[in-house]
Design a protein around this nucleic acid. Structure first.
Lengths: 148, 148
DNA sequence: ATCGATGCAAACCTTTTGCATGCAG
DNA sequence: CTGCATGCAAAAGGTTTGCATCGAT
């Protein structure tokens, strides 16, 4: 839990350093975030999880906190093709991408650096300065391949 | 317009071959699709464009037709991080990806094959059969770079 | 003539907003 | 204390659905 403590400290600092109050609701949300590290979640899902810790929290607060955390770089949106928005915790230097199973919806994450040369080429060709990339591969996971 | 005729014919066949009626509304939607080839559009945007041809079409019909066309492979969803869904016409062998400007929202499309080797590697590593990929690079377009 | 497709309006679901109250700094 | 943050409920998108009618086959 040492690493978690350090991370929590840095996330709290992001609120404080930007003059946002560290309310108990925001702390509760950070707790849930770290206890579910690496997951993607909707506002509703986050709300349900936070309610187990603090049953009085309002859904609007969850939405407002998500927006603020995205602004502070604590979280960011991940856009899968769904009717609602999904989010995940941001971690510097942790570009990761997704393999998404079109049968069962399973999401596998992976990291890679192979794309960097490719990015240079694109930047030249289109006079575009790349800040970030999101890559998704759709297909069949091991299990679903067998069930066909 | 020769190529368009051929494409239109094949799209109409997709309805017919699957026993869906080729109503005037569906035909109007196909017309708009081909006359705005390559664009991404929301249901609302498509609705507005179709209304110029057929002012009596209902928004629900546009939604229902979009769903059907996605099912038939005529269109597919593209997921940018927005509050509403966006679609584009599908074209076999035309994998293309996006450069998205984080300042002005401009979207530049590009094609590339450099990722194929990378895909093989992922398939081995994760026992995952890749069917399709979607790649987005976020950054600053030429114009917005200058305005900073 | 039949049954799927349409238009309308209502329902739904997710997200945002206004306002009075609460609480961190 | 002060002003930002919260909870509630209402409003605001975007999308889906029920139902009577229309029209492609």
């Amino acid at each position: 839990m040492e690493k978690d403590e350090k991370l929590m400290k840095s996330l709290r600092a992001k609120f404080r350093d930007n003059n946002y109050k560290l309310t108990s609701q925001r702390q509760d949300i950070l707790d849930v975030l770290l206890n579910n590290f690496g997951e993607h979640f909707s506002a509703e899902e986050l709300y349900e999880k936070v309610r187990k810790i603090n049953p009085d929290i309002g859904l609007a607060t969850v939405y407002r906190t998500l927006e603020l955390m995205c602004q502070l770089g604590i979280t960011h949106q991940v856009d899968f093709d769904s009717t609602y928005k999904r989010y995940e915790i941001s971690l510097e230097g942790q570009h990761h991408h997704h393999l998404i199973c079109i049968d069962c919806g399973k999401i596998i994450e992976f990291n890679d650096r192979v794309l960097e040369g490719f990015e240079r080429k694109l930047e030249d060709e289109y006079q575009f300065e790349i800040v970030e990339h999101r890559i998704k591969f759709y297909g069949l996971c091991n299990k679903c391949k067998l069930n066909r």
